[in-house]
C-alpha cells in the first residue's frame, strides 16, 4: 500500500497505478501503486529478484509494462514514441555498470545528449558539462577516456552525464553495487549533495546509511510487490511486515 504525501497531491512527479508486468508467463511486477511528489527522495530496497530494478526501468520505458498506467510529469507512458522521448529527456538514469561510452572522452560523454537531443551549441554544452563535472569533483578528467578512470570516477562521470540534460527526476539503479568498497563513499557523497539540492530521486540500493541520511521514504519490495513504504526512522525502527523484518535483519545484521 502506498502512502501519498498529504501536502503535495497537486504536484505529483510520478504516478504508477495498478501496474502489472510479465516476462512471458512470469508475473514480475504485481499491482504496483506508487506516487512520487516533486522533490521527494525515495529509496527502494529488497532481495534480489524482487523486481525493484525492473520497476524503476519501467519509469523511463527501458522496460514495458503490460497493465496499468505510468504517468511521468503529466505524460502517460505508452507505446507512443513521442511520449517516450519526452519522458526520457526529463528523467536521468545512473546504471550499476556505469555504461559510459568508451570511445568518447569524459567531456564528450557529457555533451553528447545536449548537442544531439536538445540541439545545444557546443560551447554552451561544454560549459554545462564542466559545471557538473566540478559538482562531482572531477573536472580535471574532462579530456580523459573512461578506460583511464577508476570505477568511482566513472560512476561520478555517469552522474554528471545524466545531470547535463537537467532532468527533473533522477533514477539510480544500484549505483554502488559494482564498486570497490573504498570508492563507494565518494559516489554516495555525490548523491547526498545532489539530494540536498532538491531533485526528485528514486534510488535502488542496499546502502541503508544513505537511506537513513537522505530518504523521505523507504520502500521495501519482495517478489514483485511493494510490501512496505514508510519514513526512514519508522521503516528501520518499526517495520510492520514480517518479510520486512526478515530482510532488515539480514541486511543490517553484519
Amino acid at each position: 500500500m502506498s502512502e501519498a504525501q498529504s501536502n503535495s497531491t497537486n504536484d505529483l512527479c510520478i504516478e504508477i497505478r495498478n501496474m502489472n508486468k510479465w516476462y512471458g508467463d512470469f508475473h514480475v511486477l504485481k499491482n504496483i501503486n506508487l506516487e512520487v511528489s516533486r522533490g521527494e527522495k525515495i529509496v527502494i530496497c529488497g532481495p534480489s529478484g524482487s523486481g525493484k530494478s525492473t520497476m524503476i526501468r519501467c519509469i523511463n520505458r527501458l522496460e514495458e509494462h503490460q497493465q496499468g498506467d505510468i504517468i511521468v510529469d503529466g505524460t502517460e507512458l505508452t507505446n507512443d514514441l513521442k511520449n517516450i522521448d519526452a519522458v526520457r529527456r526529463e528523467v536521468g538514469m545512473v546504471f550499476q555498470h556505469f555504461n559510459l561510452f568508451p570511445h568518447l572522452t569524459v567531456l564528450e560523454n557529457c555533451t553528447l545528449a545536449p548537442i544531439w537531443v536538445r540541439n545545444t551549441p557546443k560551447a554552451e554544452a561544454e560549459a554545462t558539462a564542466m559545471e557538473f563535472l566540478e559538482r562531482v569533483k572531477i573536472p580535471e578528467q574532462a579530456n580523459k577516456y573512461p578506460g583511464q578512470l577508476s570505477g568511482g570516477q566513472q560512476q561520478r562521470v555517469a552522474i554528471a552525464r545524466s545531470l547535463c540534460m537537467r532532468p527533473n527526476i533522477m533514477l539510480f539503479d544500484e549505483p554502488t553495487s559494482a564498486l570497490d568498497p573504498e570508492m563507494i563513499k565518494e559516489v554516495l557523497d555525490t548523491m547526498v549533495s545532489l539530494a540536498e539540492e532538491g531533485i526528485t530521486m528514486l534510488c535502488v540500493t542496499h546502502e541503508m546509511g544513505f537511506a537513513k541520511k537522505v530518504a523521505d521514504r523507504v520502500i521495501f519490495m519482495d517478489e514483485g510487490e511493494i510490501i512496505e513504504s514508510n519514513k526512514p526512522h519508522e521503516f528501520f525502527d518499526n517495520p510492520q511486515h514480517d518479510r520486512t523484518k526478515l530482510f532488515l535483519s539480514q541486511i543490517l545484521g553484519h
Binding site: 500500500m1 502489472n20 510479465w22 512471458g24 508467463d25 512470469f26 508475473h27 504485481k30 499491482n31 503490460q66 497493465q67 519482495d222 514483485g224 510487490e225 511493494i226 510490501i227 512496505e228 511486515h241 514480517d242 518479510r243
Partner: peptide, 12 residues
Amino acid sequence: YVPGTHPSLPPP
C-alpha cells in the same frame, strides 16, 4: 490483496 499475499497471475 494484503501486501505480501499477491498471487502470481497469468499474463493478460
